[in-house]
Simulated scan of single mutants.
Amino acid sequence: MLTEVTATRYVTPLREGGSLPGIVEADDLGTYVMKFTGAGQGRKTLVAEVICGQLARRLGLRVPELVTLQLDPVIGLSEPDQEVQELLKASGGLNLGMDFLPGSLGFDPLAYEVDPREAGKVVWFDAVINNVDRSWRNPNMLVWHGDLWLIDHGATMIWHHNWPGAQASAAKPYDASDHALAPFAPDVAAAAAELAPLVTRELLEEVAADVPDEWLVDEPGFGATDALRAAYVEALLPRAATIHERITLGPRTERRASQPPGWLAERLAPRPQAVEKDRTETGKDSTT
């Protein structure tokens, strides 16, 4: 279970993140990056942060310590930014805190070398959790005291936004072509051999148990929070065992023509009825 602390002072917002996280001080004298239940992405972002962050830590990857943070919105009354005030008002109660790493620097592949073994572990882990937010455009990694630290796992496990299709989604491959560590020749096979056997049902159950009940309630299709926790386990367990066989490392997308996502491509494609009508009226195919 995560340690629970209470926020005592709101220090400043971090505007790099879309969810507007903020730096806060707590009653344990610690300083944390707080992520809010009232942010636009909702509490599923915090669920993903806990499950993926705790799993990474249990596998020996560096992730800042996570805590739950009790927030009284009154601490933001002196904040001059109206957007921040509204976020604090919407986030009273239990939120997520990530240990603040003072003096850390954003990962720069030109300034920091990563050996293939460590790069392979990170790429393999991101494939397991289907992390689409560790690209060369937005690495979501820090360098602190000479070591690489992983942050921001809220955009992972996309299947938990559509549980009826979760098993099919979790079985999909992982394209690591744009991964921030792809240029470092990640040894994914070695990472899988070392880490995959560690991802047991018992480990995943322990990690899922760290998610507070109040972030799991009222999920459609689940009558109890334990059933929802079990669904996360059932999605991650088989993926960890075989995902190394379905990881693609190709050229970055900056070198390829931009392609719309599948759902958008389907909407943009001309409808058969419209094409046939155009042929009838003009005597030619409008797609040529």
Rank of each mutant, 00 (worst) to 15 (best):
L29I: 00
A189F: 13
Y174G: 09
A26W: 09
Q85V: 12
L228V: 08
S135Q: 09
A241L: 06
T12P: 01
V233P: 04
D115Q: 03
L61Y: 11
R279M: 15
L20E: 00
E276N: 11
D285A: 13
A26S: 15
R9E: 14
A7E: 02
D133F: 09
T6R: 09
L94K: 10
E83H: 11
A119V: 02
P139V: 10
A171N: 09
E254L: 07
T6K: 11
A7P: 07
H145A: 12
E4D: 10
A176L: 07
K284N: 07
M157E: 01
T31M: 01
K121Q: 14
T253Y: 11
L59M: 03
L87N: 09
N140E: 07
T31A: 02
F125N: 02
L228P: 01
V217T: 14
E281K: 11
W136Y: 15
V123R: 03
T156I: 06
A231H: 03
R255A: 09
M34G: 00
E118F: 05
P116G: 04
V207E: 00
I75H: 00
R271K: 13
Q70H: 12
L195H: 04
G97E: 07
R239M: 03
V211L: 07
W124I: 01
W163E: 06
R137G: 13
R201I: 01
G93S: 07
R15N: 13
W163S: 05
F107I: 02
P116H: 02
D213N: 12
L77F: 10
R267F: 14
T45V: 04
E205V: 08
H153M: 04
K277A: 15
A166T: 03
I151R: 10
G146V: 06
R256K: 13
E214A: 11
K277C: 07
I23K: 13
A189Q: 15
R279F: 06
D72F: 10
P272K: 10
A231S: 13
R137V: 00
V114S: 03
A231P: 00
L96T: 00
P238F: 05
A127P: 05
K35I: 05
D28K: 13
G120K: 10
E245L: 12
D99G: 09
N140I: 08
A208R: 03
A170N: 01
V143Q: 02
D99A: 15
F125K: 02
Q41H: 14
L198W: 05
G103N: 06
G40H: 13
